[in-house]
Design a binder for these strands. Structure first.
Lengths: 353, 353
DNA sequence: CTGTTAGCGCATTCAC
DNA sequence: GTGAATGCGCTAACAG
């Protein structure tokens, strides 16, 4: 039950060093000897003490996290969760370096990745822009021996070891079903609001949404996408215009940020009219309150804390060449209705977009 | 950044032993000296290496998990996840003992808790039956110095340190809103299917459901609860009878187990009729497939793996008198539609109830 | 190829 | 009150 390397060495009739060699399969052990040690190991049901091993090894994990300097609530909460994680991580011998880059700036992201390649940490987590230069930079990084994971937005056909984030296509399809079912019995059209279809997450959500809508709720008109560039002001104008020009909007799917504008436009709409059914992304002070007030009817979200912690665990596992627990690292699409909103999110009231 | 007890001892001009005394606030240090050490500590930004500490201390966590010997999929997956966790936990010096007790057997649960009190592990996790004898047994356990957490079903007004599970009231309310919105535009009645209202989770879900339904969708008729005792056969008969006698069932909320029966009854119903909208609890092979086929329209679920891992983390934190990360330990109510069902759940096809 | 030895960072006897 | 010494389970130089 509680056997140590000493026990193995003794029952196998070898020395500690030899046990260590087979344990970390290093060269320099005769096949015969190796086998003897192996037998002793599972005879005693040995499980190595990782803590002691890391202590002796003096191992220190160094990870770089590249995040955009965006000021929207989601990115902010990602940064907040990272700060928290950094503190906890220190006690577990992992050191995390936060690198901020301008948002949506391909050159900056490539430069940051190349800087990591030079810096040679044990691992890197980054929010990808899905372009070839980024793919190439990622390739350089991993080929130099650094483990890389993508966060929130993936990099297709790349050398990243893992993607930490939700399935955006599924999110779009889920939104379609929610809206389709909620709008059951109504006749109006559905409007879609995105930041920009140039961004991969948004594109994937939109594709999923449109496809599912067409398949499962045929006959429901989907209006052309409105691109609000994730800016509250712009989004507000778009929605105001929309609601002013068309009286028959049955539902709205807001798949990007800038929900402040959406909510304000909805609130300004005449109360006696049938309000459109609204599904939006990301839970923050604004969307949560709108959900409570009935301006929004469902929120799809991803848990920033979970994503950060998962990224660290995955990076650590990669560094140690250990397997991960798939169930633990699956990032769920969270669905919030008025009723399952955590009571405790009055804290997040300091939001921007 | 990487200061050790030695550094502190040196800069404070004391010995290791003294540093250790203030670190674990033990007696035998003059206030003056203690202060000097404290100053040195935060001057150097010291963070103690928990791994090394545990190694030196030879600390071993021993936890007991008391689970019912139920054969339904949820309990089974809870056990499976526990087995997995046990393996991983061993490497981190925690030893977990699984204790199976007959389901819904108050005397057995009390006996198991008392056995734990005698056995004196570091912590105990158990699925509570919400009764006074259980409360008293829990009291005895915690008063003997063992940390206790409830799992899945809570014990009201008790001495447990933490509840690891979903908010069942919120789950019920969420189901109400889903069904209410989905059934928008229809006129029929809503049927509710429970295992037994004697069980606390079920009672809470039902209360939440009924209240939310009455408030948010007034005028919608809710039929009296049908109690299927979580047995597939019984549930099937209840639903068959229901659908045969009433043509106007707009929705069904199945808040307990035995969903196999529900699904079979639904599948047997004439396809040309308007199918009722169905919300059920717990994701398993049966409910997932029914969701795909459109017999069920939403599943509310709790993640057994998350619950097990959370329980272990919380128990460990209690044993070390450490704080937990609230966000990490919040068990979410998961909502699955056809579209966000993990592709990978064909594995769970071996289900019973 | 294999064994000896000296720590990693900390907790814990024991002397002083 | 305080300090010096020993060892937890493991790894990593070194010797042989």
């Amino acid at each position: 039950m509680k056997s140590t390397v000493h026990d193995i060495a003794r029952t196998a009739g070898v020395s500690l060093a030899t046990v260590d060699r087979v344990l970390n399969d290093r060269p320099g052990v005769r096949a015969k000897t190796r086998e003897r040690v192996m037998n002793a190991m599972n005879a005693l049901g040995y499980v190595r003490d990782v803590g002691a091993a890391n202590l002796a090894r003096g191992r220190r994990y160094r990870f770089d996290f590249i995040l955009p300097d965006n000021e929207n609530t989601f990115m902010l909460s990602l940064r907040t969760e990272l700060e928290t994680a950094i503190k906890h991580a220190m006690a577990e011998r992992v050191q995390i370096n936060l690198v901020l880059v301008p948002a949506f700036d391909e050159a900056a992201l490539v430069a940051a990745l190349d800087a990591c390649t030079a810096h040679q940490p044990d691992g890197v987590a980054f929010i990808a822009l899905d372009t070839d230069p980024v793919r190439a930079a990622c390739q350089r990084l991993t080929q130099s021996g650094v483990h890389a994971v993508t966060l929130v937005s993936d990099l297709g056909h790349s050398s990243r070891a893992h993607y930490v984030g939700i399935d955006n296509g599924a999110a779009g399809r889920t939104a379609a079903r929610l809206l389709g079912l909620f709008a059951n019995g109504t006749k109006g059209a559905i409007a879609v609001l995105a930041g920009s279809l140039q961004v991969r997450d948004h594109q994937e959500r939109y594709d999923g949404f449109r496809t599912a809508m067409q398949v499962d709720f045929p006959g429901r008109e989907i209006l052309p996408v409105l691109e609000g560039l994730d800016e509250g002001k712009r989004v507000e104008k778009l929605v105001r215009d929309l609601l002013a020009h068309r009286q028959d909007i049955a539902g709205i799917y807001s798949l990007g940020a800038g929900n402040r504008g959406l909510v304000e436009a909805l609130a300004a709409a005449p109360a006696h009219a049938d309000r459109p059914l609204v599904v939006a992304h990301e839970r923050d002070g604004i969307t949560a309150q709108a959900l409570r007030q009935g301006l929004i009817h469902a929120i799809l979200a991803q848990d920033a804390g979970h994503e950060i912690r998962s990224a660290i665990r995955v990076l650590k596992a990669s560094a140690d060449r250990l397997a991960i627990v798939p169930g633990q690292e699956h990032i769920r699409i969270e669905i919030f209705l008025k009723d399952n909103l955590p009571q405790s999110d009055c804290r997040n009231l300091a939001e921007t977009e």
